[in-house]
């Protein structure tokens, strides 16, 4: 079998932690199969990133370098990676289940006439047929499926935290420069401008207070803000989150969305207000250390996963709670 390839990504100019996790997973498979494990970094100026990627015990790091690979233009990246796969013929190709991996993975798999499995939690190789066994949650995590696909390379995107990040190795990997053949005509979707917005990083919060479908009016989030203010004096970093229906109503921006397609978090305390607990939301907060639920429906999902439950109307409970917390000091 030929080598294992993985796509390394950068975050704020440095190696993304997700890529270190991916390396761990890939190196494990490489050892099991007795094949080389290699990484690719893509961009227009990849020297530094390649060098950082080379210190983790991989056999090779490919520097896929081209002016059109600057930033992240999906059309160019798909073309460049398609070209690289043509050159090195990997037997397995792994990507993070990240913004980049989610876009590049399916398109690349189609071009290479193979099949991809997204959002995997575990990977192994069936010793019988040599196919990659991909384990992934389905139905919002209510079932865990393991599946196999035909096709080369065997492709998967891997969820954050599925593996421990790899540690630094003694010797550096070989760095191989590759210049792909990408023409301007490959780019069919043109970027006009990038609009950067202030983005909250919910995964940095000690406490997240989230509102859901049960919140009656946009203004009612003021109550949650007041609770956050009251708690922030004693509980560290307190942030406001929400479930998907709140983003659908355009009351909150999507960076505040907790769940499978939002942010997956594990704060010390999670307070769910008016959130029934759709499975896609629960995936995002189930690993919180303590969960408090406030909801009018005693039968809702959220009470099944919560440590503390308050059955009642948040409009009565939260203002009284804020008052009480302020008295305590």
């Amino acid at each position: 079998m030929s080598e294992i390839l993985l796509l390394v990504e950068a975050k704020d100019g440095a190696l993304d932690k997700k890529s270190l996790e991916l390396m761990q997973g890939a190196l494990g498979l490489g050892r099991q199969l007795g094949v080389a494990t290699c990484a690719v970094v893509a961009g227009s100026d990849t020297a530094r990133l390649a060098e950082s990627a080379a210190s983790f015990g991989l056999d090779k790091v490919y520097r896929l370098e081209h002016p059109l690979l600057a930033g992240f233009q999906p059309d160019a990246w798909v073309k460049g990676l398609e070209w690289l796969c043509g050159q090195v013929n990997p037997g397995i190709f792994l990507l993070s289940h990240s913004f980049v991996g989610k876009e590049v993975g399916p398109r690349l798999a189609c071009r290479l006439n193979t099949a991809l499995t997204t959002d995997c939690l575990g990977l192994s190789v069936d010793p019988g047929d040599g196919l990659l066994v991909r384990t992934k949650p389905i139905y919002g995590g209510n079932a865990i499926a393991s599946l196999k696909c035909e096709g080369v390379p065997q492709m998967a995107t891997v969820r954050k935290n599925a593996f421990e990040p790899v540690g630094e190795a003694q010797s550096a990997s070989a760095i191989v420069e590759m210049v792909p053949d990408i023409g301007e005509d490959a780019i069919r979707v043109k970027s006009i401008k990038m609009v950067e917005q202030e983005v909250v990083e919910l995964d940095k919060a000690n406490v997240v207070i989230s509102g859901g479908r049960g919140i009656e009016a946009k203004e009612d989030f003021d109550m949650l803000e007041a609770l956050a203010a009251a708690m922030s004096k004693s509980h560290g970093n307190v942030m406001i989150g929400c479930s998907r229906p709140v983003v659908d109503k355009c009351w909150m921006s999507s960076d505040r969305q907790v769940g499978l397609t939002g942010t997956i978090i594990a704060p010390d305390t999670y307070i769910a207000v008016g959130i029934s607990g759709a499975i896609q939301h629960l995936v995002g907060m189930i690993r919180s250390k303590k969960i408090v639920a406030i909801n009018t429906d005693p039968g809702c999902n959220m009470f099944k996963v919560a440590d503390y439950g308050v059955v009642g109307d948040y409009r009565d409970i939260i203002p009284a709670l804020v008052k009480k917390l302020e008295e305590q000091r």
């Binding site: 865990i144 499926a145 009470f303 503390y308 409970i317 009284a320 009480k324």
Partner: peptide, 28 residues
């Protein structure tokens, strides 16, 4: 190749009962 239920996500939920004022006190 395999389909299994996830590890149990459920927790033992302590319900805080009473009128809103009492619930708020206990929750605080």
């Amino acid at each position: 190749t395999e389909l299994v239920p996830p590890a149990d996500m459920g927790r033992q939920c302590t319900l805080i009962e009473g009128a809103a004022q009492d619930q708020a006190c206990r929750l605080a």
